Simulated scan of single mutants.
Amino acid sequence: MKFQPLALQDAPLLHQLYADTPDYFRLLGTQLPSVGEVEQDVQTALFDPRRRLELIYLPDGEAGRPIGSIDYKLDFPDAGDVTINLLLIRGELQSSGLGGQVMQHVEQRLPTRTRRMLASVLGDNARAVRFWERLGYRFATDARPVMTWYAKQLTPPLSPAPAHPSLSRH
């Protein structure tokens, strides 16, 4: 898999990914964000040095069309934590095992200081809960009706990961 840090000019690609995954927004009871709203979200993410927003591609996949995106934050809420804000796989590719593969790749690239992974699940999303539980995450915090949090302890700590440009920014 190839992970490309999202730049502001990539907002239309992220918007198209959202458009290709309408069930997610229906589940949340919200409208698909406009390209302008996606640009604002990307710009906000770029101002946070701990936040990572990446497009995900298959090495032999369709040129220029991401299979998904991931939004996560290092050392949040505490030092050594990584919080997954959103993992989104394009609608027609969901339930194909790609989400689990993405998370394996993400875990391999995390800083060695990472001790715990957290995943936020927005709304009443039983499918997302099952996904995170299959990956070893357990219920951690109830912040309903907005979200619930699931956590996975990484013990022993992750082995040293190769340097990755999107993870070495300060």
Score class of each variant (00 low, 15 high):
68 G>E: 05
85 N>G: 15
119 A>Q: 00
64 G>F: 14
14 L>P: 02
130 R>I: 13
95 S>R: 04
45 A>V: 09
160 P>E: 10
80 G>A: 08
73 K>I: 15
18 Y>A: 14
99 G>S: 08
109 R>Q: 06
32 L>T: 02
65 R>P: 05
100 G>D: 07
47 F>M: 05
44 T>V: 07
104 Q>R: 04
138 R>D: 14
103 M>T: 00
136 G>R: 04
91 G>D: 05
14 L>K: 02
157 P>E: 07
112 T>E: 09
73 K>T: 15
165 P>S: 15
125 N>P: 01
134 R>G: 07
116 R>H: 03
68 G>R: 01
118 L>M: 07
82 V>A: 00
156 P>F: 10
152 K>S: 01
17 L>P: 05
61 G>Y: 02
103 M>E: 00
117 M>C: 09
3 F>G: 11
143 A>F: 11
142 D>P: 12
153 Q>K: 03
144 R>M: 13
136 G>V: 06
155 T>D: 07
104 Q>Y: 00
165 P>I: 13
140 A>W: 10
90 R>N: 13
42 V>W: 01
45 A>N: 10
21 T>C: 15
168 S>K: 12
44 T>L: 12
15 H>F: 04
103 M>S: 01
165 P>Q: 08
86 L>V: 15
108 Q>T: 09
160 P>M: 09
87 L>F: 04
143 A>W: 02
45 A>S: 11
112 T>A: 13
95 S>N: 09
18 Y>S: 11
45 A>M: 12
53 L>S: 11
153 Q>C: 04
60 D>H: 06
166 S>Y: 09
84 I>V: 07
91 G>R: 04
145 P>A: 13
137 Y>P: 00
95 S>M: 09
101 Q>L: 08
132 W>Y: 00
10 D>H: 02
15 H>N: 08
125 N>Y: 00
125 N>H: 05
5 P>G: 14
149 W>C: 10
124 D>G: 10
43 Q>C: 08
72 Y>I: 08
8 L>V: 06
68 G>A: 14
3 F>H: 04
36 G>H: 02
60 D>A: 14
125 N>T: 02
104 Q>H: 11
147 M>P: 00
169 R>M: 15
111 P>E: 14
27 L>G: 04
16 Q>G: 10
87 L>H: 02
14 L>H: 03
130 R>D: 15
61 G>F: 09
94 Q>M: 07
40 Q>K: 06
43 Q>R: 07
39 E>P: 03
59 P>I: 12
